[in-house]
Design a protein around this nucleic acid. Structure first.
Lengths: 339, 339
DNA sequence: TATTTTATTGCACACGTGTGCATAGACTAT
DNA sequence: ATAGTCTATGCACACGTGTGCAATAAAATA
């Protein structure tokens, strides 16, 4: 009734456990007859290797840690889903942690990752984390780390990020080229590298397009309520004629606001934004969708990690992979502006 | 530069490793002066316990396995998020697996869970899994299992499910009481317990309400395209005047269809469905939302698991916790029909 | 002072696995 | 027949931790 081990098999077959171990690993030094006997008995008893024992010997335990601010967020859940599949295909198992945007929890998570002896970590830092130096504890334990999307550029590790600055520049310029003059922006707190970079891009884009109107509203929590409040202020006086949103929730709020005002997209108003939900293209045509290449980003992060796990000398490789968002317009079929 | 172990600390302080172990665990038999010395040095060197070694001794490793069909699905991502937080608060770590609705992968996952020596598992079985007997392998290894949402009632383990049959009965009857005569249903394949139960409830509800119209369309893949195809057939001839949807995607398709037909909700047509997305209540008022008590379900599953982990005699307790969905109507404020 | 109790620490083992080395037996070649 | 090679298996150790028991020293009691 107990879990069967290599020693159990050895005792049963009157062999030494080392012989059984070798047989199970298909070592050439083992007599084929013996190997068959061992394999047959192991199968019969449902033997499963004990990875804790392996790990204790110094072998890798093939666990990858994934740290995200919140799993229940379409971007991150998709990303976790992709990495989980990639990992499983490569014989890894994932441990998932969410920081809930809290620095304290992030620190606890790092301890847990170390105690678990994970083979490597991919992390997106929390909003609260201005300084991600606690992540360097991982390198003290020789655990490779890849930063993803929300990164701290001061950490000397490989990173995968979106071309946030450029996308905002291009979106503003696209609007300008279409004749919109008053392009506003609903963003998140610039503590996060993502939003800081985008805000930089927004202002640069305004500059480059020769526009004068500039309104960037910061939204703390990505809820419909907060976005509507911000929209009311924005439309109160000095209203925009185009808007870029950092979240599909903001876009939803904007669509509703515009419906109330009786304004049509894109004739009366230009609307662009990151993220989408099922059917959004069909609810309102003429939307500019800023699409992150999620598969590409996940795959890049994963292969960087595998590389670092297999060759630890690369842990400190301070390389940044910049993935390009595409700018699409909803309609009968999505039109591609930038790849 | 190497990871510091108990033995390292012992050597440095001229103590036996067992003494250090006891000091770190705050055993009363240790001299307070010694303990302080050990703690100070451990802190200084950044000692972190090695859970693999612990686990090898037979102690629990505090890893919980979560198996879902797909992480990137709002219901499951929310559920994984909730369980992850609960687990972390209780000193557990989660390993997440997705079966991609594939039986093969599910079997691989079970092996991985056993090799990892997880303390317990919460699983939702895949669509492809008609017979979940492979899960019983876990019990051979004395690993507690809780089934969640998508369950196989033939397995003698604790389960947490929604009152699927009842909800569909009640929704049909609610529509009937409001004067709708032709209530249709868009569902998933009844291989899954969830949809089988709901379909049963639909037909029972029709029966109990004394209606004659009955149209239950099965949709294989929950995409907007497939749902629109089904809706076109449904509205082709013998059209319904009310519809119950198993997914917010179907609801979205229906809303768009109704807009095209110029029909208003709820005056001309009754629409109900499971799942929601941000802002749905504001897109169309008068919707009947069938809301799963996600927190309650996650908490129930988690506490069942903890119970089973702490007292293995309860592993085989074949108990089913039935959580009640609420039936809400969107509007200025959600109106509650059933708790 | 002799003896018993108490306080603190060390020793040895176990958990499951893999590997370098030694050993034993069988076969080959001179 | 003796030495040498090859084949197959056993032995012993290591990984990091915790615990029952033994041992030592110090303190308390008689």
């Amino acid at each position: 009734m107990k879990r069967v081990t290599i020693k159990d098999i050895a005792k049963e077959l009157n062999l030494h456990h080392s012989t059984v171990s070798r047989a199970l690993r298909d070592e050439k030094s083992i007599n084929p007859r013996t190997r068959e006997k061992v394999l047959a008995y192991a199968r019969k008893r449902g033997y499963q290797i004990n990875r804790s024992a392996l790990q204790l010997r110094g072998d890798k335990n093939n666990v990858i840690g994934i740290v995200v601010p919140n799993i229940n967020h379409s971007f991150f859940s998709n990303y976790v889903s992709l990495v989980t599949d990639l990992a499983f295909k490569h014989g890894f198992v994932v441990s998932v942690f969410q920081s809930n945007e809290s620095l304290d929890q992030e620190q606890e998570i790092i301890k847990a990752l170390i105690q678990q002896n994970v083979s490597g970590v991919i992390a997106s830092v929390s909003m609260e984390t201005k300084n991600a130096s606690h992540f360097s504890l991982l390198s003290d334990f020789h655990i490779p780390l890849i930063l993803f999307d929300r990164v701290d550029f001061s950490l000397p590790v490989p990173k995968v990020v979106l071309n946030n600055t450029e996308v905002l520049q291009n979106t503003v310029k696209l609007f300008a080229s279409r004749g919109y003059k008053r392009v506003a922006y609903l963003s998140g707190t610039p503590v996060s590298s993502v939003f800081a970079d985008r805000q930089k891009g927004y202002f640069e884009g305004i500059e480059q397009a020769g526009l004068s109107y500039r309104h960037c509203k910061i939204i703390e929590n990505f809820t419909l309520e907060e976005s509507q409040e911000a929209l009311n202020q924005l439309f109160g006086n000095d209203a925009p004629d185009a808007l870029i949103c950092d979240s599909h929730i903001f876009m939803l709020g904007a669509i509703m606001k515009l419906q109330k005002l009786g304004m049509k997209i894109p004739e009366d108003f230009g609307l662009a934004g990151f993220g989408s939900f099922t059917g959004m293209p069909l609810i309102s045509p003429g939307l500019i969708m800023l699409k992150q290449p999620e598969n590409e980003m996940a795959e890049a992060a994963f292969s960087l990690l595998i590389e670092a796990i297999e060759d630890k000398s690369k842990i400190e490789k301070d390389e940044t992979i910049l993935c390009k968002a595409s700018i699409l317009e909803t309609g009968s079929e999505g039109k591609l502006y930038t790849q």
